[in-house]
Amino acid sequence: MSWITKTFTSSIGRKVIVAITGLFLCTFLVVHLVGNLQLFKDDGGAAFNIYSHFMGTNPVIRTLEWVLVLGFGFHIYESYTLAVRNRAARKVGYVDSRPSENSPWYSRSMALLGTLILIFLIVHMYNFFYRARFGDLDPDINNNDDLYTLVVTSFKQWWYVLLYVGAQIALCYHLIHGFRSGFQTLGLNHRKYTPIIRVIGYIFAIVVCAGFASMPLYFYFFK
């Protein structure tokens, strides 16, 4: 094995990949959220459709899309590999184990939360991304694909809203742990800054997930 593969297949090496991709995905969430805020513009979806048209056609964005795919891919693959390895490190378990007395549940459930998010992601991708990119959406008044209408009709179905809001709750807990955890894994732990990072992590997780969750709720209840 070369030093490169050795580095990135070591326990810390894999963690570092998870951390870097995780923090990268956090930046994606911000961009995604900010863009989607166009949904709230009361213009029958014109602005949103311009935005989604731009995202679907701009060559820079299209290139970055692949980076995003790689980010997701590595984040999921490395996390999965680590989870398997960690599970295997204790073949015989405890008869009586009370982890709730020493740690928060979501920190211990990152793999589960991640899996839930992945399931959501597949549904979400199929529903919006796939149909926007490869589907046959009707044009809107500006002759852009009318993704807005698809979003609105989707969010009129209760089970869809439930799925989305549920996924955001999972994502929120995933982020509360993941945000600060990413810094810790990259070695960025400092008596001065770590408490600040923790607070930012909480705010980030809540704001981002509340933002995303507000969309289906808004359309279900107010439109």
Binding site: S103, R108, M110, R180, T185, G187
Partner: peptide, 26 residues
């Protein structure tokens, strides 16, 4: 296994070894 920054180790450590050490090791 590999650390996932849960912090159970430091919480149960009888001599209070801090998670800062893991960051430093990383």
């Amino acid at each position: 296994g590999a650390c996932t920054n849960i912090g159970q180790c430091a919480a149960e450590c009888p001599v209070g070894i801090s998670l800062e050490n893991i960051a430093l090791m990383n």
